[in-house]
Nucleic acid binder design. Structure first.
Length: 950
DNA sequence: GAGTTTGAAACT
DNA sequence: CAGTTTCAAACTC
């Protein structure tokens, strides 16, 4: 992304801003329900953006670099959905401007108002719900020139309204709205801009056409389209570097008092005019990577790829978004990147504006938003004031989204539902950028805090006053999931995510990093797990949160101590992991200010000895290691390629591999873990500094969750310090990433990528065009969903133990053909488990008992099926034999013998150590007898079998 | 380090 | 669901 940014800067920065003119209004063709959830709508929109161009044919042409015009579609009651831009057909407003033309040139703006708009009385000029001028207003309509009616607006502007007959207008404009009338607003030559509504300034000058459909039935006061909030910039006079100045100082702008210009890393510029509610969309290339304050009062905001959330705590009235033609496609594989225009989606007050290329803007009203938010303020520009504003900016490699959320009582980000805030009066603009190591931690923290905790959010809102909230995500630099998307995407993960009840304060930073740390899945961890239910409610919640299946119900949690935020943050959680003796699964609930009571499920280990408690984070629901083996379900950590090591536990093995220094560190960590466990075991949890949060990518993976207490992106944030933490961890790297991916074509958004498959962000990887990071959260979420759609268990561990005590098996089995399952190509082999009957491998030599047997010779003797059957048969036979000799009676008898020894020694006051030894000896004797019996039986049976034949 | 092999994932 | 293609890791040289 960095590379493209530079190119863009050089190319686009100098270009004058194309002026926007309203050309025509599209006749709504169909009424689509806006029942889509926000996430769905976003998905569709994303899909549209990412993939095909808008349905509008004009887009295609517009997307071409040569095309100079800006087209704006304002859709009503529609949100971009899966169907794509077809939604835009209804109630769309297309604004076409001479994109590359110098601003000095007179601009003609044609505006078409599609149906659902209230017919404008001859005496009233109204766009949307905003009345520009009325006859009733004294002196508003000054005179009539031919078919033009001169209207003086409240602001003293003079515009001419021309009634025109459909068909006389441009074909595009009139098409679809035969019944609609067209009013042409012609601004006198002396007027540089037309003020269409209070707070809305049309910078472009010249002709304004307003086609008003005659459909009275559809004309609902609230359904009217308001242009307020959309203001084409007057010009390309201002370059990216000076854009802020232009916005603030431009006399042509009626409202802009304070404009903040935010420039993304990709060179995209977002201007936020705090003076007014209007939204400025400017499709001009940007160059810089920094955001410059628009005015003295404006707060400087820097949006670098590494930047986190940025919250503009000031009333925002105007937002200017400049887009630039992506020079490079998202994938980067397309050679003709320049020909691939980016798209910008602006969602405003239930409307969405999709800008294709720098010159194409589409506004699509969000039905849901419109319905819910419109008319709440007595018809005062309801549409613009309410709803969400999402702006998707073309990036060098991706798309940027900006969402302006209404300032709701509760933080918009916290809203899990797709409901759109109905409160229109106050808006909060928050530019959220993924936090990065070098980002703006303060801002990001603020945003996250607001989203995460109601209290914080409310507080933030108070501070912000009348502001809009803008959540911006960009593919080029960073991506912040739109709230709706978050709700959408994270439903599964939310359960786990919501559980993240990290303090809004610095704790978040510390927690997040830890969350991203890898928690290597332990071998047979489930065997040792003992589920403890601390509270019935908790357990119920846990079950509730797991819609995605049993495994999905097991979110990963990272337990970190709150000790010095930085310290805790930098301290990999894995360090504390200890897999030993008794691992208890603890389901606990905690309540955070921001979220519902959260349920935490984690394992802690308590050795049988008196060494104190050890603990480990649990979570079986998500692959936790980054190795391919882990990705494939191997829960153990494969540190080296040595296969078939002595049957020591992975932990032992790893510990063994540690150097002295590492071991000491390990011990130190263990001590810390113990301490934490003790603290956690204290009855009074509130006093415990221990923080339990879901392990990072809880989300991904198919984990169904409740409403996210916090924005998904917050939860998904890769630990800022994780990367810095590097690979070394206290446990000698057992929990560190074994390897970094090297993906080149999958953008790390497919299961090919180990990182992605493990639900992790790429860190320190050598991958190319990596999208598996917070900057591309949208794409990442989409990819996750896509994977889950294909395979709901895609992110579940592939290797599990069916039952406690059972051997781990590959859930799906391998399918090796040529490796004999004796190379790491084989997932089973890589996981150090024998192939099972589930496997479809050919020539398998990865047998449990005889891995060394050369099965090649057998290949010719028996077909694949034969091998499978044989394998299954042997397995079953072994099981049967075990059942024959280890009957319940035998086992019971053995146990009774052992107990009897205990009782006997207790009476004799024998030392515990001796008692244990005696008991073990007793068991050994019993086993010996059983084996002897089995042998005898077998010999007897063989003799019996041989007798008949002879 | 480049090229090949391999099998899961993705696609058709 | 099967066959094919894509992909990235594992492996070989």
């Amino acid at each position: 992304m960095d590379t493209s940014g530079g190119n863009l800067d050089s190319l686009d920065d100098t270009e004058p801003l194309p002026e926007l003119s309203f050309e025509d209004f599209l006749e709504p063709t169909s009424e689509k329900s806006s029942q889509h959830m926000e996430i769905e709508a976003l998905d569709s929109e994303e899909d549209n953006i990412g993939g095909e161009d808008l349905a509008d044919p004009a887009n295609d042409s517009l997307n071409t670099p040569q095309f100079k015009k800006n087209v704006v579609h304002i859709l009503e009651d529609k949100r971009l959905n899966s169907s794509g831009l077809t939604v835009l057909k209804s109630h769309a407003i297309k604004m076409v401007t001479a994109g590359g033309t110098p601003p000095a040139k007179a601009q003609v703006t044609d505006v078409k108002i599609l149906n659902k708009l209230k017919p404008i009385p001859s005496s009233t000029l109204k766009i949307g719900s905003t009345t520009i001028a009325t006859k009733s207003t004294p002196g508003s309509i000054t005179k009539t020139l031919g078919n033009l009616t001169q209207i003086r607006t409240k602001d003293g502007q003079v515009i001419f309204v021309q009634k025109s007959v459909p068909g006389t207008q441009s074909s595009t404009a009139v098409t679809g709205s035969p019944s609609g009338g067209i009013r042409r607003l012609v601004a006198p030559s002396g007027i540089q801009k037309a003020v269409l509504s209070k707070g809305v300034t049309m910078a472009s000058t010249g002709l304004v056409k307003a086609a008003v459909p005659a459909k009275a039935s559809t004309s609902v006061p609230g359904s009217a389209i308001t242009l307020k909030g959309i203001q084409p910039l007057a010009g390309g006079t201002a370059k990216a570097s000076t854009s802020s100045t232009t916005a603030t100082t431009s006399p042509s702008l009626a409202q802009p008092n304070k404009i903040q210009v935010v420039r993304t890393a990709d060179g995209k510029i977002i201007k936020i005019n705090q003076a007014g509610p209007s939204l400025l969309v400017n499709a001009k290339q940007g160059t810089g990577t920094t955001v410059t304050p628009g005015g003295s009062a404006a707060t400087s905001v820097k949006l670098s790829p590494s930047t986190g959330n940025v919250v503009l705590n000031k009333p925002v009235g105007q937002v200017v978004v400049r887009t630039e033609t992506p020079v490079k496609t998202a994938t980067g594989s397309v050679a003709s990147a320049s020909a691939t225009p980016g798209k910008m989606l602006v969602q405003s007050g239930g409307k969405q504006i999709l800008v294709s290329n720098k010159n194409i803007i589409k506004l699509s009203p969000n039905a849901s938003a419109t319905s819910s938010t419109t008319h709440t303020t007595g018809g005062q520009t309801p549409s613009t004031s309410s709803g969400l504003h999402a702006i998707q900016l073309p990036g060098k490699g991706g798309i940027q989204y900006v969402r302006v959320l209404n300032n709701n009582k509760s933080a918009a980000g916290t809203s899990a539902t797709a409901s759109i805030p109905k409160t229109v009066q106050t808006q909060k603009i928050t530019v959220v950028r993924p936090p990065a190591a070098t980002g703006v931690p303060a801002t990001s923290t603020t945003t996250s805090a607001a989203a995460a905790s109601p209290a914080a959010a409310s507080k933030a809102n108070l501070a912000m006053g009348n502001t809009n909230k803008i959540v911006m995500r960009s593919m080029g630099g960073s991506i912040v999931p739109l709230p709706s998307v978050q709700t959408l995407v994270s439903k599964r993960a939310l359960g786990a995510i919501s559980n993240a009840s990290k303090p809004a304060s610095a704790a978040s930073s510390s927690a997040t990093p830890s969350a991203s740390q890898e928690l290597p899945r332990k071998h047979r961890l489930t065997d040792l797990n003992v589920q403890l239910k601390q509270s019935a409610s908790v357990s119920s919640e846990a079950s509730d949160s797991s819609d995605a299946g049993p495994e999905a119900k097991k979110p990963r949690y990272v337990i970190t101590m709150q000790q010095g935020s930085q310290k805790a943050a930098s301290q990999p959680v894995q360090k504390l992991i200890n897999r030993t003796a008794n691992v208890q699964r603890v389901v606990s609930s905690s309540t955070s200010p921001s979220s519902n009571s959260t349920k935490k499920i984690y394992n802690y280990v308590q050795p049988t000895g008196s060494n104190g408690a050890k603990y480990m984070i649990c979570n079986s629901g998500v692959p936790q290691s980054s190795t391919s083996a882990m990705r494939r379900g191997y829960t153990g950590y494969v540190e080296n390629k040595t296969r078939r090591p002595p049957p020591i536990s992975p932990q032992q093995h790893r510990f063994k591999q540690m150097g002295p220094q590492q071991q000491s560190k390990h011990q130190q960590l263990q001590a810390q873990a113990k301490q934490r466990i003790r603290q956690q075991q204290l009855p009074t949890e509130q006093s415990t500094p221990i923080k339990v949060e879901p392990k990072l990518p809880t989300l991904p993976p198919g984990v169904k969750a409740n409403v996210p207490a916090k924005p998904l992106f917050e939860v998904l944030k890769p630990p800022a310090t994780a990367a810095a933490a590097g690979a070394v961890d206290p446990l000698g790297g057992m929990t560190s990433r074994r390897k970094h991916c090297n993906c080149s074509r999958s953008q790390c958004l497919k299961l090919y990528c180990d990182c992605f498959a493990n639900g992790e962000f790429c860190q320190d990887c050598t991958c190319k065009d990596c999208f598996n990071n917070l900057d591309y959260e949208v794409e990442r979420e989409r990819a996750i969903r896509s994977c889950l759609d294909r395979n709901p268990s895609a992110f579940k561990p592939k290797i599990t133990a069916p039952n406690s005590g059972d051997m781990r098996l590959h859930n799906k089995g391998c399918n090796c053909k040529r490796s004999g399952c004796l190379k790491n190509y084989c997932e089973c082999y890589e996981a150090k488990i024998p192939c099972s009957s589930i496997c479809k491998c050919v020539g398998c030599r990865n047998m449990e008992d005889r891995p060394d047997v050369d099965m090649d010779s057998l290949d010719g003797l028996m077909g694949v099926e034969g091998q499978k059957k044989d394998k299954a048969k042997n397995k079953q036979l072994n099981e049967n034999r075990a059942n024959i000799y280890f009957t319940d009676d035998v086992i019971e008898a053995t146990i009774m013998c052992m107990i009897s020894r205990i009782v006997m020694h207790e009476k004799q006051n024998v030392a515990v150590e001796d008692m244990e030894r005696e008991v073990m000896e007793e068991m050994g004797e019993s086993l010996t007898q059983i084996i002897a019996f089995a042998k005898e039986k077998q010999e007897t049976s063989q003799i019996d079998e041989s007798k008949p034949s002879s």
